[in-house]
Design a protein around this nucleic acid. Structure first.
Lengths: 223, 223
DNA sequence: ACAAAAGTGTTCACAATACACCCATGC
DNA sequence: GCATGGGTGTATTGTGAACACTTTTGT
């Protein structure tokens, strides 16, 4: 009997109200049927690892992600109680606006959970999530990953709140804006947000400028 | 037919004369028999991934490494011409002083190659090595990994040369020493090196102090 | 007019950089 | 005494951090 290869996706979303959220599915099948778990499943013979994660994610939640990278491979012989399975975990970010979740195929349900209110999880998924959160926090400081979590257009304060929420510490408004704007990857739009208080200018991520700077070997230290 | 799981080890060594070196083995078996490749092989049913890399490394080269961490998992369906194999690559550092290489079991030969003079390699190993080198360069800047490549006792200039060699740029002697010493993780010994020119003071890595600082959440930015 | 959130500049302290001369040993 | 590499300090510049008041809107 051979070793099986699976993938799991740690998918983060962000909402101003709930803060950082995580996408989980409820398992239909043993082991851990009924438990909440990361979306994922076995890799097919002829697909790449990336294709496998994306396929599983779509099958289980009908979701398309905005950013994805490999996180880590978990291979403890005891991580699956039934057989030997190693899992290549991926780390993903998604803009939540609009996209509805829709459980299907292998999942009984799919839901967003606030990071502070995660349910008990199957396998070693708590461990995987911890690693993903570390990665997110680390990368946020030197890559503009936060922009992958926000809507197309957003007020600057939302970006700041995202940073504060993920890094779990306050961020000075003026210093943050100064530094972030100096990266030259945000465009200010001629639109204002609505709501209570003074309307805020809206910004948009300029991916072209970003790629340009990257290619020039520019290091983007944000915090 | 299932997917197979293998591990590969990218093992770096350092020698003042040759600079950064890489450990390669010559394959005995198909595919790519006779080619040079990274040490590695299939994971057994009941061992962890780490155990697998270390076992393979010992079988093929009789070497024990000094530092090891997971690098990345390579899963392109075409990476092995015969069957589907995914490989979990590890990144390792070894102090070269003394330890003799000894090819055995699965390897026809095992040798250190200077990074600038690598032979043609089997599979996607060139790609794996490129990723490992990136990782080494990146980590060297914020973790004292260089110390895992040097002898127990070393003159400060050797550490500096190691950094210059890996990062491929000159480093100012005084600034480098100031910064590195301010980390408080090196002990100066009452011994001097011998050789041509003025004898140099010898230093030793104090792992206890290092772990202490880490636990205090200290960030070690080196360059 | 008041509550709520947005916008904006300056000062200060520390850290990174650049830089050149003298010292100890072996041959 | 000369060649080789080792050792050290200071001045300048740039960057990160701290900090408070005014503006715009809705109610």
């Amino acid at each position: 009997m051979a070793i099986q290869v699976a993938t799991d996706a740690v998918v983060f979303g962000y909402e101003a109200r709930k803060g950082l959220c995580l996408l989980l599915i409820q398992r239909k099948t043993e082991p851990f049927a009924g438990s909440w778990a990361l979306p994922g499943g076995f890799v097919l013979e002829h697909e790449s690892l990336e294709q496998a994660v994306q396929r599983e994610l779509e099958e289980e939640t009908s979701l398309r992600v905005n950013y994805m990278e490999q996180l880590y491979t978990f291979g403890d012989p005891e991580r699956d109680p039934r057989k030997r399975v190693i899992s290549v975990a991926y780390f993903a970010l998604v803009k939540r606006n609009g996209q509805a979740l829709q459980a299907s195929t292998d999942a009984a349900d799919a839901r967003w959970f606030a990071m502070e209110q995660l349910p008990a999880l199957a396998f070693d998924h708590t461990h995987i999530i911890a690693k993903a959160l570390q990665r997110l926090q680390a990368k946020l400081s030197y890559e503009p990953l936060g922009l992958e979590l926000l809507d197309e257009k957003f007020p600057f304060s939302e970006l700041q709140q995202l940073y504060e929420c993920v890094l779990q510490r306050p961020v000075d408004r003026r210093n943050f804006k100064k530094k972030f704007m100096s990266l030259g990857i945000l465009d200010e739009l001629n639109e204002k947000s609505v709501g209570v208080g003074r309307p805020a200018g809206l910004y948009r991520f300029n991916r072209d400028k970003y790629n340009e700077r990257r290619q020039q070997g520019m290091v983007l230290e944000i915090l």
